[in-house]
Nucleic acid binder design. Sequence first.
DNA 1: CACTCGAATGACTGGCTGGTCATTATTCTA
DNA 2: TAGAATAATGACCAGCCAGTCATTCGAGTG
Lengths: 220, 220
Amino acid sequence: MPVEGKTRREVLTEFRQIEILAAARRIFAEHGFRDATLDQIATAAGMAKGTLYLYFSSKEEIFASSVRSRLQEVHAAVARAIAAAMGTEAKIRAAIHTRFVMHLADQSFFKIYFTEFNNLCAHPGQFGEEFKRLYLEGARLVEPVLREGMRHGEIRRLPVREAAMALTDLTRTVYAAHVMGMQENQFDLEDFVFQLYWRGIRAEGGARQPEGRRKMGTTS
Amino acid sequence: MPVEGKTRREVLTEFRQIEILAAARRIFAEHGFRDATLDQIATAAGMAKGTLYLYFSSKEEIFASSVRSRLQEVHAAVARAIAAAMGTEAKIRAAIHTRFVMHLADQSFFKIYFTEFNNLCAHPGQFGEEFKRLYLEGARLVEPVLREGMRHGEIRRLPVREAAMALTDLTRTVYAAHVMGMQENQFDLEDFVFQLYWRGIRAEGGARQPEGRRKMGTTS
DNA sequence: CACTCGAATGACTGGCTGGTCATTATTCTA
DNA sequence: TAGAATAATGACCAGCCAGTCATTCGAGTG
């Protein structure tokens, strides 16, 4: 008896998968991929090890799925925030803010993202390529913003791809450094990252000329 | 018969250790910590597995040693470069340049540093604490430069610790993004990082006032 | 050359854990 | 409620590999 395009069974299956992935993130965050065992994950999810294999085909796949799903959510949220904000500066601020909020909201995911993600990408196996692509997709969300800013003369000429990646990584590592280490000094970390980046990329004269002179003959 | 404070045996032991660590870096870089086996490392070093245990007590220790030694060399080189350069801007440029050069000079180490280091730091085991400290030591090398720059009014007021870490991570991730991905576009990566960071931290009015006004009453 | 002793070896093992599957429990259907 | 279908279980297994150690090698010495 299908309801809303999904049978009862499909809904239950999906729910089970979500349960497993949530448990997996907790365990992977705590022990790291290497030291986490499937028994631990199964127990954390309140089921037996064999059950995991009804929903996923390997430890690697559980790991990759648990990261993939959250990462896509982060990207979607960043994309929405950028779309909602008006103006180059605000859009970049929104991207940083959203990433910070998402990191804060799921510490387990963030810890994995910080400690295991590079490793995952470097591995040439099936998931390595996928995750490199996924990372790049996320980073490139600000590329249109940068290009538009350059067109308006708000942002100086710079390599867009690298600048976009720099923002993603800067946000991640500064947040991580802060979480891992010393939270004692309570200045506005988010604003620090924004100021550092925005001053780093903006055009010499600030945003003085609204529809700025263009050097190259872009269309109307 | 001690020569130059070291016996023949001590020299040989040290040499053997260096051989092992070099081989270990190659293997760890290629396969990652998890998938690298001691047999591979031993073979790469031209010896049998048992021999490794004459010089190191575990796989973990070989790994930690292989990272530690290179990391300390990088730090030392950065420190020298900073000391040799004159002026805030030049010192920061020198720090970035040196890190780039060192990364380029030992790709194996750099790959480990990029893919495994965060993991190593996050692990609460014996090495986790040590490597967090070591990372911080490296990052903090530019702190005096930043403070001096702030005193001279060249650099705006900002949290020194975080700014120092941001530089380290920015250098690393931008370099990594470039190595891992697409080297096709040949702009000056080093200058990109420098410009991004320097513009990000410098004071509003540039470095116009050489012995700039100080807000707070620092001693003469 | 013969002897000594530390260095080097590599076959072996014990523990661990990813993955399996025969069995049991549960849910669905008629 | 009976019977079928599906989900869940957890004891078990197989392979892998870090770490060991009885044995062999070889440099130094007289």
